[in-house]
């Protein structure tokens, strides 16, 4: 409890046990968080962004086809302005090439996006790959 007198507050000297319990639980939580972060800080190596893409679905949109994909960053560094290029080829001929830019793909995280194609990817070779990034 806190006593308020003339605009100043004075903490009671004989607090209820629940105040100590709350304080103790909080101390354990904060120590646990700092301990975990400290452990991560020591054991985690800084690796440059490592990007990979998994194509999820191809479906019909109002204009053309929508190809959705997940982009994973398995490294411990975040990549910014990640450009992803989608290329549709038939034999040696490039039919269509589109790109999309992700503001960020966080470290050890995934992001989801889509590329729209005019032509139907069915029966053709679809290649979606990361083309570059900047450091945040």
């Amino acid at each position: 409890m806190t006593k308020t007198e003339k605009g100043r507050h004075r903490e009671r000297h004989d607090p209820h046990w629940i105040e100590w319990l709350t304080g103790l639980v909080s101390a354990v939580l904060i120590a646990g968080m700092l301990g975990w972060l400290g452990w991560e800080a020591f054991t985690r190596e800084a690796t440059p962004p490592d990007l990979s893409i998994t194509v999820l679905t191809t479906e019909k949109a109002t204009t053309g086809r929508r190809v959705t994909f997940d982009i994973y960053n398995t490294a411990t560094t975040t990549a910014a302005a990640v450009t992803v290029i989608g290329r549709l080829t038939e034999g040696d001929r490039v039919i269509e090439e589109n790109h999309v830019v992700f503001d960020y793909v966080a470290a050890e995280s995934k992001a989801t996006g889509a590329i729209l194609f005019q032509a139907d990817p069915a029966g053709r070779t679809l290649d979606i790959r990361p083309a570059g990034y900047t450091d945040p």
């Binding site: 903490e11 100590w20 103790l24």
Partner: peptide, 23 residues
Amino acid sequence: GHELSPETPWWHAFVRFTLPGYV
């Protein structure tokens, strides 16, 4: 501001108020 009784050690308020406040 808050103050402590002279006989209360500083870490009393730290454990009872500041740490729960941060959580």
